[in-house]
Design a protein around this nucleic acid. Sequence first.
DNA 1: ATAGGGTTAG
Length: 668
Amino acid sequence: MTEGKHGDGQMAIGMIGEMRRQTIKRFQAPIDSLRLSISVSSFSSTLRRSPIDYDGDLAILHCLPPKQSYTIIDQLHLHQNASMAEHNLSTMTKPLNFYISSLQTCISVDHLHQLHAQILNSYFSNSVFLLTRLAHAYLKFGCPTVGQRFIISIIKNPPLFLWNETIKCYARKGCYRESIDLYYDMLRSGYKPNAFTFTFVLPACAGLKSVADGRRVHDDVLLFGCECNEFVITALIDLYGKCGELGVARQLFDEMPVKKTASCNALMAGLVLADKFDGALSLFNEMNNLGIKGDTMTMVSVLQSCASLGALQQGRWAHDHIIRTRMGINLYLGAALINMYARCGSIEEARQVFDKTPRKDIVTWTAIICGYGMHGLAHFSESLFLQMISNGLRPDAVTFVGVLTGFSHNGLVEKGWCYFHKMRDEFGVKPALEHYSCMVDMLGRAGQLKQAEELIRKMYVKPDSKIWGGLLNACKIHKNFKMAERVVPEILKLDPTNAGWHVLMANIYATSGKWDQVAKMRRNMKEKKLEKQPGWSLIEVTGQIHTFLAFDQSHKMSKEIYKYLEDIKEKMRVEGYVPELDVVFEKVDEETKEEMLFYHSERLAIAFGILSTSNGDVLRVMKNLRVCVDCHNVIKFISRIAYREIVVRDAKRFHHFKDGVCSCGDYW
DNA sequence: ATAGGGTTAG
């Protein structure tokens, strides 16, 4: 500090008075909230601990040792800012108004650090009012700490508002644990949370999917009497929905006296997350009946449900509804629409939406790329990928999953390797389990079993049961029983309770005639009480979803369906159909085998579709498992005999059947 | 001075 600045203490006091007058005039704030303090002893040693009476009010001037006020500045590395010292005096004499507007217009954290230092050097260094604004500014930039300290610790007794904002800041950044811990800290410090607090801490519990923390906070909601606040209830519904506790979520929702769009959306998102898609769609109907308007978030959930169910007609209706109500198609909705059309089997409509979307981000592009990928249209997938790059967007891990699955479905092994390497070398995306999974699948199906196994053994992510399962599937296709025996124990080690693997293994043993091993697998399943996942197919006719299980006779048109299949069987025989009995893994006679094949769920769904729609309508069937070789064959026949285009989505991809040919080229 | 819900893969 220079000699001059030590100068006239009386002048400094005069300035304080002038400043207060201005401040009070400008903000008309109560005197108490403007307890001015000065922190710098550099003005004059005569100021030390001298209370000043001004305009009849008491302003307390604390003269802190300069060291103290610089502690935080040091942490901010602001000692680098040498020009600061030069302007000390002008800084100290600026009105409160200046700091407030500076904080409001502040555009970077660096700038904020400078303001912070200036404030600590000003008359307002201890003003709770200004420090709260300062702390809030940090939080708005997503900075809950400065150096090692919580931003709230710059104030001795931070107001509840600041605790809330800090908890929110952590939650928004995805630092859920920190957010929750801070909430507990707050309670320990004797603060009482309010409704705002809960709407910030509950999403943090939801983000962690921690029902334990969620329940604990829920108890506090009751304890502090916030259980009637609609924001809090919505946050609770969201929490329980994300944690899979749909019963609790539903109950909270039902008990709401007035339901709003957001609370419906929270429940609907929970239903979608729990794969309860028809539940989500009926909630949408419920909303319409209750006169609650849906918005873009509602429609995202609706479209996700349609996509998962393969309900194209309902999806189209939803799209139309979006246009009719002029809600505007934002990035979320755009991607959800593209995904819906693609997953419902209409890649053409997906492309139309994509082309019409004015703003496209990485997710939009990825949605259409994945769409082409699962339809086995790898060339489109790749060309869009390249267009995306030339538009200046960087592909992410998901984009590569889409491109790689496309190549995998087409057996484009060379291309696959090329992009697998490009991914890391050109785009810095580290291959994750999903990418290895695509590669193993691709290599395995192309018959490169050795290369596939090698890739698994040397990958630096720990392989999961799905990856080994992909290889085992390839062993089955290429009848490599020796490798299968090596792979089986690896899978059982990682995932001993999955019925699917046991079935796959038993089938492989059956194909190689090892019936004792088959029996062992079956016993194994029984002992572990593992249930085979039943295969189901569904088809949408006039907006209604019809579900079929194998041998299902519960449908009201069951009789006609079975009759149709009998009839078509004869026609198929004339055209040269021979059942692929190898796919039946039971030790039964051939006739029974044929019988077992003929009522697979997809055939029932297709027969029903043909019977209940007009000629020329495209049939779209969704199936939870992969379509079997014999069904694939039969559907080809049906598409020709009945002159129907049939689109089947199985667990892996789409098959478009037309005129006796499938788009997959029998490679899947 | 602060509020809830959402996009792409497997």
